[in-house]
Design a protein around this nucleic acid. Structure first.
Lengths: 134, 134
DNA sequence: TAACAAATTAATAATTATTATCTTTATTGT
DNA sequence: ACAATAAAGATAATAATTATTAATTTGTTA
């Protein structure tokens, strides 16, 4: 029997997730790994991302322009997502106030497993570019 | 020239959005309105939801199981989403702490337009059902 | 090491939500 | 009512994701 041991490609996907701050989509990971793993299949990336998410190794941050984006940093922290360029920024955990970070249950509603705090707006990069084009 | 006046069907879609606490998807709205508007087309629902969102009349809450869900209540408030049944609950605005509700900009990152606070977990309804099935 | 069993993968087809197109219909201002 | 414009229906096209299936890899055991 095979114990829970990562296959080569699964490990490569997870390692890439850990090494980047890009909050990648399946497509992005596929493109990055393809040169090193020429026989990599896109389906494998999708399959493993879902699997890693189920195992609690990564989590979904948001769906941007129809594509799911993931994060391998499991310490709770908020995100900022630029509505122009779609880039996802990590924010320091201090933006998650203690009161919110500690809520475990909402009476009459349910038990909380994951808290997602996302700020949507326009990032400074895009603001700058907008100004340039006037 | 046509002023910003809602067409019959657009009005019906918006009215339905206002009258429900379901945080509907396009499909749900289509199913609900179809009996009263037999010639309604699903494309029309998608088109108008996007339009209403651009006009700031409604906003997207989350993508659940691949489908976008909307909310017509524009007062900032958090949501609870059950990961089992997918139901979206409105939470009172007090769960949005003042400090967070008032952040307008994050230095070095960008300007905030929308804050999204979502708690994911298991709702009491589903917890109860799970227990029943043991 | 050889043979077997189970997990994983590539390749591809199938799904599904959403968007685009294009022709027809409805609506509005004059 | 009439012309101009907006909106809608029907349907085709996209695009992301999932399912399928046969082949390959990997681990296990004799």
């Amino acid at each position: 029997m095979r114990i829970q041991n990562y296959s080569r490609k699964r490990q490569a996907i997870y390692d890439l997730m850990l090494s980047t701050s890009e909050h990648p989509s399946a497509e992005w990971i596929y493109t990055m790994l393809k040169p090193d793993y020429p026989d990599l299949s896109l389906g494998t990336v999708y399959r493993n991302l879902k699997l890693l998410e189920e195992n609690g190794a990564i989590r979904s941050v948001a769906v941007i322009e129809g594509s799911e984006h993931y994060d391998a940093i499991m310490t709770p922290h908020p995100h900022f997502i630029c509505r122009l360029c779609g880039k996802i920024y990590d924010l320091p955990a201090k933006f998650l106030l203690p009161e919110q970070a500690n809520i475990k249950r909402i009476r009459g509603v349910g038990k909380i497993e994951i808290t997602s705090l996302i700020y949507y707006g326009c990032c400074e990069e895009c603001t700058k570019n907008d100004t340039d084009n006037v």
